[in-house]
Amino acid sequence: MRVYIPATLPVLSELSKRGELGPGPLTGYAVTPALREWYTEGDEEELEYAAMTEAARGALRLLAADPLAPRRRVVVAADLFDAVVTPVGTPVSREQGVEPGQVRIDGLVPLRDIASFHVDDAIAEPTVAEAALVVRAADDGDEDAQFAVDGAEDYDLLWFATQELPDLL
């Protein structure tokens, strides 16, 4: 199963040193039955994009918790065995702070299971910084805060292969 894991550049630095993410449980996002039910019209590519977008918002939450991290969202795409991934979202759980595609990852995520990294371009940093300051308010329904978060989501994440990790850092 392809899982999108929110991260930050310091998390990637730690991954580079240790060769793995974790230990779990980790929060990730994937194309789950609940996400399929919530996006009734979406094809597979649109569903993958929705899961990655939720992971990017999760990265904003991580940035909000780490004021020293560079203000760039990071999403790690990993191919994991279904046995270590447990869906926690439901089609109606969004109102309770759980996204339909949210999953729990039990255990470690070794570098060999990572398919790619998705990272903001440096040009997005001011907008991402603003969004990180207000993401919790956006989660609570603040429309002005949501506008700032939407601004960050207007930036596409850049794709990096796993062998580019040293250059990315």
Rank of each mutant, 00 (worst) to 15 (best):
L26C: 09
R94F: 12
E14A: 13
V109E: 04
P25T: 08
G19N: 10
P100H: 02
R104K: 15
G89P: 05
P166K: 15
E20L: 10
D121Y: 11
T27V: 14
V135S: 00
S13V: 13
A83Y: 13
T32Y: 03
L165S: 14
Y4P: 02
E41Y: 04
Q146R: 15
R112A: 14
P6N: 11
D120A: 10
I105K: 00
A56C: 08
R94Y: 10
A138C: 14
M1Y: 01
F81Q: 14
A129W: 00
F117V: 09
T162P: 11
L47F: 08
G42Y: 01
D150S: 14
Y29E: 06
P33V: 06
V92K: 08
T162F: 08
G101F: 00
V74L: 00
R136I: 03
D154V: 13
T86Q: 10
V98G: 03
A138W: 02
A30N: 14
L35W: 00
V134L: 06
P87L: 02
V103N: 01
Y29S: 09
L47H: 07
S16H: 15
L133I: 01
E164K: 11
V92C: 03
D140A: 15
V134Y: 02
L133Q: 14
L165V: 08
P6A: 12
D66A: 00
M1F: 04
V109N: 01
R104H: 07
R112M: 06
V149R: 08
G24W: 01
A145N: 09
Q102G: 10
E20Q: 14
Y155M: 14
P70F: 00
A83W: 09
A131H: 05
E48N: 13
A51G: 10
V3L: 05
L12R: 14
T90Q: 12
V109G: 05
R18D: 12
P126F: 03
V85S: 06
A83M: 13
R36P: 05
E20P: 10
A148G: 06
A122R: 13
G42E: 00
T162Y: 09
G28E: 08
E44G: 08
L68A: 12
